[in-house]
Design a protein around this nucleic acid. Structure first.
Lengths: 197, 197
DNA sequence: AACTTGTGCTAACACACGTTAGCTTCTTAT
DNA sequence: ATAAGAAGCTAACGTGTGTTAGCACAAGTT
């Protein structure tokens, strides 16, 4: 009889959720089976249900924990006395670091949210839409300030957010530059592409 | 008895493949069932097999037709007497236009290739790796020429390619800027982020 | 020590999936 | 008109899926 190993302060459910992130990232939500997950956790599939409600629930858990982190960060940044370009850079660096250090969860949230079920799906889409609007608003302020080139702000947001998800390829590459170098390169190119002049 | 409608010069198989692109884009490869596809085509699921070999085969078809278009384009651009930055811009514009006008196929190729089966999977990964190296090589030449900032070329490639896949969000947004504006904005930001001063 | 709760197991269900077999019907060429 | 091939249908297969029921053992509490 195999027990799920837990360190102090980490519930068995949390262990399952984080293993699920790894599995969903690797295979995709639909292609990952509960039996796969059970094997990864070291237990029989049915045993998982002592800790979780359903497979979809795992996805909820992952998606909203990530989404909430970003929402809190943009709250913080909006009330930060920095220039617009400074705010953009801060947000960008936050995204990059999240993608580097919480790779699996962020990636799964990014790519697999489509498989959420209503009402979570609508909630998620809403939260996402609002986040992007707030991000775009920061850029628009920068454009009015002449800090930022005259560009379409939603397009700029879309470029940034998707460019960041490219860190997935960095994670899987064999010859990696360091995380710090990666961050600096991304900021140089992306912020460099926005700055007026 | 419902027949698959075909215009001149479009085989029934091609109709199925292009409907598959739409479906796979919307639901993801694994979540899309052959019965879904059949309904979209206007026929019973079993009837599809008079025209195609398997579900996976549809994915092969899609992925390689897209990948080959990009391979041919980079062949063409490499032997083009343009500056490095000019080459990058041309390739970037090609990607953007492909993503705009062959949305479903390009998107599916981008996101669902993981579900290819060997040996196609290895072939695809190989082709992709080589393509990215060639793209990076163009950028590296530009860096040596001082046309392009001193950055990590593979990172620049990764940013560009992923930024482009953000056009997905543009497609699904209600208030769209025009395709031309989108292209110009993306080029401004991305090429602008590379140019040395 | 006794009891309660938590955690695991095996077995099984109901269902959805990709695909095949076998037959019918429509289209086309002789 | 008829034969041949293309394209459709229904029925069914085997398999893998998420999940539940029912039971056994372990841990924690009184």
């Amino acid at each position: 009889m195999a027990r799920i190993k837990t360190d102090k302060n980490i519930s068995r459910k949390e262990v399952i959720v984080s293993k699920a992130a790894i599995l969903f990232r690797e295979k995709g939500f639909k292609a990952a089976s509960m039996r796969d997950l059970a094997e990864l956790v070291g237990v029989e599939a049915a045993s998982l249900y002592n800790h979780i409600k359903s497979k979809t629930d795992l996805l909820h858990e992952l998606c909203f924990s990530v989404a909430n982190r970003f929402t809190h960060k943009i709250d913080e940044i909006e009330s930060d006395p920095a220039s617009s370009i400074g705010k953009v850079e801060k947000l960008l660096r936050f995204h990059i670091n999240e993608m580097i250090s919480h790779y699996e969860e962020v990636y799964v949230c990014d790519r697999e949210w489509k498989h959420l079920a209503d009402p979570y799906l609508s909630n998620f889409q809403n939260q996402r839409r609002i986040y992007r609007k707030r991000f775009a608003a920061i850029i628009e302020t920068g454009i009015r300030n002449k800090e930022i080139k005259k560009i379409d702000a939603p397009t700029a947001v879309l470029i940034m957010l998707h460019a960041i998800s490219g860190i997935e390829s960095w994670h899987r590459s064999v010859q990696k530059i360091s995380a710090e170098e990666l961050e600096e390169n991304m900021v140089t190119i992306l912020v460099g592409g926005l700055i007026n002049k």
